[in-house]
Design a protein around this nucleic acid. Structure first.
Length: 495
RNA sequence: GGUCUCGUGGCCGAGUGGCUAGGCAAGGCUCUGCAAAAGCUUGUACAGCGGUUCGAAUCCGCUCGAGACCUCCA
C-alpha cells in the first residue's frame, strides 16, 4: 500500500497525489445546469466523484468538496443571441426562471440522495456569485486579457495565447482551432471566434439580468466555476473534476481565466469522468438518447425489463473504472443485481457469524485489506476493489463451513473492513436502507398477503371466526389493516 | 477534415511485456421430498495483418471498426 495515484488529464499520466496542505484536500466538481432533469449519464459522473470523495474521507483526508449549481449563464449555443438554457426552459414551462432552477435543483438533490451520494461541503450557485464574477472580469480586463465590446466582455484568447498555452488541457493549439472554427458573421462583437464571453449584455427580452459596470447583463458560463473555485478553494487547489465533455471548452477556459486573473491555473490535478453510453451512443438531453435515474428505480422505460434499486445501479457504475466508457444495458444491470445480491448475502452471513472457532484463522485479512487499498490507490480502480470483495465473499463462505478459515479475530477484522468498503466507500445500501427497493418489496408483500388473505377467506367460509379474527388481529398488530368488502378482502399498511 | 480514445471469451468489465482479474450467463458436481437458494468446479478470450522481443492482449507500424471532442451537453 502506498500513496494515491491519480490520472491527471492535464499531464495525461498517472501522478502521485500530494495535497497542497498535508491531510487536506480541496476538490471542485462541475455540477449540473438545472434546466431539466439529470439523466443517468449525469448521475454516473457525480457518483464517480462521490466515490473519490468517499475514498479520500476514508483515507482520513479532510475534504472540502465544492460542487456548483449552474443556474444562469449557460447558453443554448454560442451565437450572440444564444438563449440562456434556464430562461429558455422558463418560457417553455411558462414559469419564472428561478422556478425552473428550484424545480430541477430539488430533482437533482432527490436523485443524489436516492443514489446515496454524499452532499458536497459547499454547493454554490452561479447567481449567488455575480459579484465575484464581475470582480474576476474586472481583473481580467485590468490584466489585459479581456476587452469590452458593446456592453459585453470577452476573453481575448489571442492576446492570452501570446504568453500562455491556450489549449494546454485539451491538447489543441490556437491555429488548429482557428482553421476549424466558423467565421464570424459580422454580427458578433468578438474579435476572434475563439474568444469567449465573460460577461454578456442582456438583450431587451432577456429576463435574467444583473447590473454591472458594463450595463445590465449576465455572466458567461465558464466564469462561474473559476470564480467559485477561487472563492472557496483558493487560487490554487488540489482536484478539479467534471465530465469528459467539459474538457473543452469549459475547463480550458477556466484555466485561461484563472491564469489570466491570478497566477495559477487553479487545480493541480484535473480529473475527467467518462461517459455512460446507451445503445453505444452517449446519453444526451439534446438527442433524446437518455435514461432517467427515476426510470431505473421504477423500471418504467423501454430500455428496461424491470426496476432496479439505486444501490444496484451504483454497483453497476462502480464495476467500471471512472475513466472508461461504460455501456448501459438491461442485461448488464441484471448481472450487477445478481452480484450485488451475492455480496450483500455474504455480508449478512459474516455479520451474523457466531463467535466460535479458533482465534486466529487462515485467511490473511491484512494482506487482503492492503490489496483493496492498492486497488483504490491506483486511480480509484473500483472494479478491482470489487473483485477483491468477491475474494472476501469466498472466504466468508469457506468460513461458514469451517470457522477456522477466518477465525474469530479474522472475522471481526474482515467485517469491519468489508462494511467500510461496501457502505462507506462504494456507497452501497441494503435493500432496507434504500427505499428504492419498494417496488420489489411491495410485490413480495403482495404475494405473501394473497396467501394469508386466502387462508382467512377459507376460515371465514368455514365460519372459523376465531382463526379468521386471529389473523386479522395479528396483522393489525403488525401494522397491516384488513378491509373486508363485497369483492373480498384487501389490506393496507398503516403508517 | 482536425485532435484524441478505444476494439478483451455469450454479456458487462479489469489488466498493459512472462504469473487465475472479477461479476453475470452456460456446462458439470454437491446439497435437497420437489423446486428454489446456496456452495464447489470447468471454460483459455484479447479486431485483423506485419514488426520488435527469448517471450506481446500488453510495445511499434499499417488496415478495418467503434466512440468522444472541435464553442449545447456529466
Amino acid at each position: 500500500m502506498s500513496g494515491i495515484q491519480i490520472y491527471d488529464s492535464h499531464q495525461g499520466a498517472l501522478s502521485t497525489f500530494e495535497p497542497l496542505q498535508a491531510g487536506r484536500v480541496g476538490m471542485y466538481v462541475c455540477g449540473p445546469t438545472v434546466y431539466s432533469h439529470v439523466h443517468l449519464g449525469n448521475v454516473r459522473t457525480f457518483l464517480s466523484f462521490d466515490l473519490i470523495f468517499r475514498y479520500l474521507k476514508y483515507r482520513d483526508y479532510t475534504v472540502r468538496y465544492v460542487r456548483n449549481i449552474t443556474d444562469a449563464g449557460h447558453l443554448v449555443d454560442d451565437a450572440d443571441e444564444g438563449e440562456d438554457k434556464v430562461a429558455k426552459r422558463a418560457k417553455l414551462e411558462q414559469i419564472e426562471p428561478m422556478e425552473v432552477v428550484q424545480k430541477y435543483t430539488v430533482n437533482f438533490h432527490d436523485v443524489m440522495r436516492a443514489f446515496n451520494a454524499l452532499p458536497p461541503s459547499i454547493e454554490p450557485t452561479a447567481t449567488g456569485h455575480i459579484v465575484e464574477q464581475i470582480a474576476m472580469t474586472q481583473q481580467l480586463l485590468a490584466n489585459g486579457w479581456a476587452y469590452e465590446a458593446n456592453g459585453s466582455v470577452y476573453f481575448d484568447v489571442e492576446a492570452y495565447s501570446q504568453k500562455h498555452p491556450y489549449g494546454e488541457l485539451s491538447g489543441r493549439n490556437t491555429e488548429e482551432m482557428m482553421s476549424g472554427s466558423r467565421d464570424l458573421d459580422g454580427q458578433s462583437d468578438k474579435r476572434s471566434p475563439l474568444d469567449f464571453a465573460l460577461w454578456k449584455k442582456a438583450s431587451e427580452a432577456h429576463i435574467m439580468r444583473w447590473a454591472s459596470p458594463w450595463g445590465e447583463g449576465f455572466p458567461g458560463w465558464h466564469l462561474e466555476c473559476s470564480a467559485m473555485s477561487t472563492k472557496y478553494l483558493g487560487e490554487e487547489f488540489d482536484i478539479h473534476g467534471g465530465g469528459m465533455d467539459l474538457k473543452f471548452p469549459h475547463h480550458e477556459c477556466e484555466i485561461a481565466q484563472n491564469k489570466g486573473a491570478h497566477h495559477h491555473g487553479g487545480a493541480r490535478y484535473w480529473m475527467h469522468a467518462n461517459m455512460l453510453t446507451l445503445n453505444g451512443k452517449r446519453m444526451s438531453k439534446s438527442t433524446g438518447n437518455t435514461l432517467l435515474p427515476e426510470e431505473v428505480l421504477s423500471g418504467d422505460s423501454p430500455h428496461l425489463s424491470k426496476a432496479y434499486s439505486a444501490s444496484v445501479a451504483r454497483f453497476f457504475i462502480h464495476q467500471a473504472q471512472y475513466r472508461s466508457v461504460l455501456d448501459f444495458s438491461d442485461e448488464a444491470l441484471q448481472a450487477s443485481e445478481k452480484g450485488h445480491q451475492r455480496l450483500m448475502n455474504a455480508f449478512t452471513t459474516l455479520s451474523q457469524r457466531a463467535n466460535h472457532g479458533p482465534k486466529e484463522g487462515q485467511f490473511d485479512v491484512e494482506a487482503w485489506q492492503n490489496r483493496c487499498l492498492d486497488a483504490m490507490n491506483n486511480d480509484f480502480n473500483s472494479p478491482i476493489l470489487i473483485a477483491h470483495l468477491f475474494d472476501a465473499v469466498r472466504a466468508i463462505q469457506a468460513d461458514h463451513q469451517d470457522p477456522g478459515h477466518l477465525g474469530q479475530m479474522g472475522a471481526t477484522a474482515l467485517l469491519s473492513h468489508l462494511k467500510a468498503w461496501m457502505f462507506d466507500v462504494l456507497g452501497l445500501q441494503t435493500d432496507a436502507a434504500s427505499g428504492a427497493a419498494g417496488a420489489s418489496s411491495q410485490k413480495a408483500l403482495d404475494a405473501a398477503m394473497a396467501i394469508v388473505l386466502d387462508a382467512r377467506r377459507k376460515a371465514r367460509e368455514q365460519k372459523d371466526w376465531a382463526a379468521s379474527d386471529a389473523i386479522r388481529d395479528q396483522l393489525a398488530a403488525g401494522g397491516i389493516q384488513v378491509k373486508d368488502g363485497a369483492e373480498g378482502s384487501t389490506y393496507s399498511i398503516q403508517e
